[in-house]
């Protein structure tokens, strides 16, 4: 890594906030003026939030416990991640330690996919939020800071920047943001949305294993936990599969994934329980029966294993080659004296 300078000391908070307000004011004046002069900029999400407060959302929240890491040069990706990693309990994370996991020298920046990859590498669940300001606020209300991707310039000449949203106030219509070398800025919803919308309203959270993001949906949450497993964090993935299954008890990816993780962690009885649950909840899943057969065979229960393997083969599907191999291996073992 060629860019690992020591982070600059943070600016005085009140001064930064004052300047931000001034800047936001300028921006608003500019926005209002440009609207009056025709060519109105549409900021639908801010408008909707100002029109009516979402149900069940507290009027304000601020995660003051989220520490601040100042960004130097092009390191807003690592700085933003360091803040949310700290908030999720990885207290040792800082800009220097995160940079090699996410910063790409040739691009002088950090890619979105790698922001999620680095999150998995430290053993946290990385989750991309739905592109809604309301979802962002719900995550913050649930105690999770949110990383946002902003385009600070123009569509044709984008300048991408990551920042961390740590609070909001519905009445004032503001979010509280840690960005670049500013530990606490107030931005109006409109100010945020204007820069945010060109990333397709992209934002992510990093939550500790064993927790689900407040706004998670079933397929996205399952894929996020499977990604944590794939990144090699088996025991963290196990906790996250538990959390996934606590919310969606019949999720196939959750049940098969939990079984696979238990198997990798050498807990065969737990693996059997997971695959059995999977095969009961999804009697048409060849994968569930195949893996159940495999675990039963390892436990020495060959008759049960054969029955499960036969069911797996009878279900055909894309995993037929594997299920046939499983059945053959079990039959060969049963023939041995």
């Amino acid at each position: 890594m060629d860019r690992q300078e020591v982070a600059a000391p943070p600016a005085a908070p009140h001064r930064a906030a004052g300047k931000a307000r001034l800047r936001a004011g300028f921006f608003f004046a500019a926005l209002a003026a440009s609207c009056c002069l025709g060519g109105c900029i549409s900021l639908p999400q801010s408008e909707a939030l100002r029109a009516s407060a979402p149900q069940g959302l507290p009027p304000r929240a601020e995660l003051t416990q989220v520490p601040f890491h100042a960004q130097s040069d092009f390191l807003c990706g690592p700085a933003s991640l360091a803040m949310v990693f700290n908030a999720a309990g990885i207290s040792a994370a800082n800009v220097e330690s995160v940079t090699p996991m996410v910063y790409l020298p040739g691009r002088q920046g950090s890619l979105q996919a790698e922001m999620l990859g680095a999150t998995r590498r430290v053993g946290l669940l990385g989750y991309t939020l739905a592109p809604r300001l309301e979802d962002m606020l719900r995550e913050i209300a649930a105690g999770t800071p949110v990383v946002v991707l902003l385009n600070l310039a123009f569509k044709v000449f984008p300048v991408w920047h990551y920042a961390v949203v740590v609070g909001y106030d519905l009445e004032k219509g503001e979010v509280i943001v840690r960005s670049a070398n500013r530990p606490r800025d107030d931005w109006s919803f409109e100010f945020l949305e204007y820069f945010w919308k060109e990333s397709g309203y992209w934002s992510m959270v990093a939550v500790p294993p064993g927790r689900m993001p407040a706004t998670a949906t079933e397929p996205e949450a399952a894929a996020a936990v499977a990604a944590l497993e794939q990144a090699g964090r088996q025991s963290e993935a196990r906790e996250s599969y538990w959390a996934l299954l606590a919310r969606w008890p019949a999720n196939l990816i959750g049940l098969v994934g939990l079984g696979n993780v238990e198997y990798n962690l050498k807990d065969l009885p737990a693996a059997e329980r997971a695959f059995r649950r999977a095969s009961e909840a999804h009697p048409r899943s060849a994968v569930a029966f195949n893996n159940l057969a495999h675990v039963l065979a390892e436990l020495g229960r060959l008759a049960d294993a054969e029955a499960a393997a036969r069911t797996a083969v009878s279900l055909a599907g894309p995993s037929l080659p594997e299920t046939q191999k499983t059945l053959e291996a079990i039959l060969a073992r049963r023939k041995q004296p």
Binding site: A29, C76, G109, S110, Q112, V159, H161, A163, S199
Partner: peptide, 19 residues
Amino acid sequence: LPAGADGELLLLILVGVLI
């Protein structure tokens, strides 16, 4: 693809240009 990088300076320039 977007690679998030720099912050403050461009924000100020942009606001300046807008005004």
